[in-house]
Design a binder for these strands. Structure first.
Lengths: 241, 241
DNA sequence: GAATATGTCAAGCGATCGCTTGAACTAGTT
DNA sequence: AACTAGTTCAAGCGATCGCTTGACATATTC
């Protein structure tokens, strides 16, 4: 009783060192970038000793890796759930908009979490240590996403799919990274950090791009064109298959 | 005669220290990122003394700034020339595809130059020193580009334009940054570094997105919709106005 | 209550950071 | 030959880097 109470109090007052380090590092990496943040910056902000990083994680890079694993696990569960919901047995009716939403929306549903920024900004970070983590963490989800998109867009050659995927990926990452340069140009009334608006305005843009006619195919020969949205609705709310 | 010859030979054999530093730093920054490259890395690669950086530029940040100024000057001249060519007196016939091409193509016409990578990768670099340079360097061109896009897309509210601009910007930056993750997924036959393919496949994607119907506007009320391409052609080759 | 496992801490390792210094070298001018 | 201005150089400044160490505190087990 007293023991449990003490344990609870301890847990309520302060997360363990491990989590404090992850929380602090996440914020700092998002703000300044992996390379520009030192291990002492992290432990200072976390209020723990420098050695704790190496005791709990082994290296600075391992901290970054753990940050991504911790956040992406629930996000990817949501992604796969949403994806499963919108790919039924009838391949003919795959909705490009729904697939894009399944892939993008869960990554934006993080509120003001620093991880959204971090994920966007590290996506093009050239530091080898960072890229190593990115490769290890993003691979499987990206594959299942592109596989679904491929089924939904049978009119596209692999090359066209490659370039369109790059556009989708780039737009998504840029929105997440939110470097505030556009805000600087368009004015403070606008912000890329508004998740609802991102889904509302960016998804239709990307859907229009994905479903536009292929560049290479002569206009005559034509395979089945994709449907942009689910038959009955253009919002997320959809009936089960 | 001998003097001029000596000067020429000297110039032919080795660019001056200033340029050697810029060339070396450009490659290293592109490969590893600004924060992960030290001044000694730069001067070692350039084959000059460490102090030369501070004698010629004053700081590491000033080197990054000079790299961007040196490359962007000719690129921005091309951009403005192409933009001037596609915005005539008849606003009604502005071609979204041509405007996008004017903005994007010149940044890709760098061959294998490291600057293309560098520009893409630094665009979302959160390091304050890097962001400072980005803000100072990109502002004016971006404004004139968005102004032209705005004229070409009168059917869009400022908010819709903001989000579509973000998608365009993001796609462009991601393609330039070429983090090779898509290549890893799609296979080695595909590469984002192919400038011709980028223009051929990405511009139509982005044009389709830009010219898609507005999200907010009720379908009934409708201002003039934009033309996707110039009347006679969908390639870069166009007659003068 | 000694033994053991787990975690924290101050101190400091060698290496490297951005940057500075003052002496030396190289023109070209008088 | 003396002078000047522009440039390069080795050496090193204090600070900080990622990471390690060994002493110590705490909690659990037998």
């Amino acid at each position: 009783m007293t023991k449990a109470a003490a344990a609870n109090r301890h847990e309520a007052l302060s997360a363990d060192t491990r989590d404090k380090i992850l929380d602090a590092a996440e914020v700092l990496f998002a703000e300044r970038g992996y390379s520009a943040v030192s291990t002492r910056n992290i432990t200072d902000k976390a209020g723990v000793n420098v050695a704790a990083i190496f005791y709990h994680f082994g290296s600075k890079q391992a901290v970054l890796d753990e940050i991504f694993k911790r956040r992406l696990e629930p996000i990817n569960r949501r992604r796969e759930a949403m994806l499963a919901e919108c790919i039924g047995p009838d391949v003919e009716n795959y909705s490009v908009a729904d697939i894009l939403t399944a892939f993008i929306a869960p990554t934006l549903d993080l509120g003001t979490s620093s991880f959204k920024l971090l994920a966007g900004r590290t996506s093009t970070d050239p530091n080898p240590e960072v890229r190593e983590v990115m490769f290890s963490v993003y691979d499987s989800v990206a594959r299942s996403f592109f596989a679904a998109l491929d089924k939904a867009c049978p009119h596209l050659s692999k090359k066209e799919m490659f370039w369109r995927a790059a556009c989708v990926y780039g737009a998504m990452m840029y929105i997440r990274a939110d470097n505030s340069r556009l805000q600087y140009i368009f004015g403070d009334d606008f912000s890329l950090s508004n998740a609802e608006e991102a889904v509302r305005y960016a998804i239709p843009f990307l859907t229009a791009g994905m479903t536009s006619p292929p560049v290479d195919e002569p206009a005559g020969r034509l395979r089945k064109m994709p449907t942009k949205t689910a038959p009955s609705s253009n919002t997320k709310k959809r009936k089960g298959s």
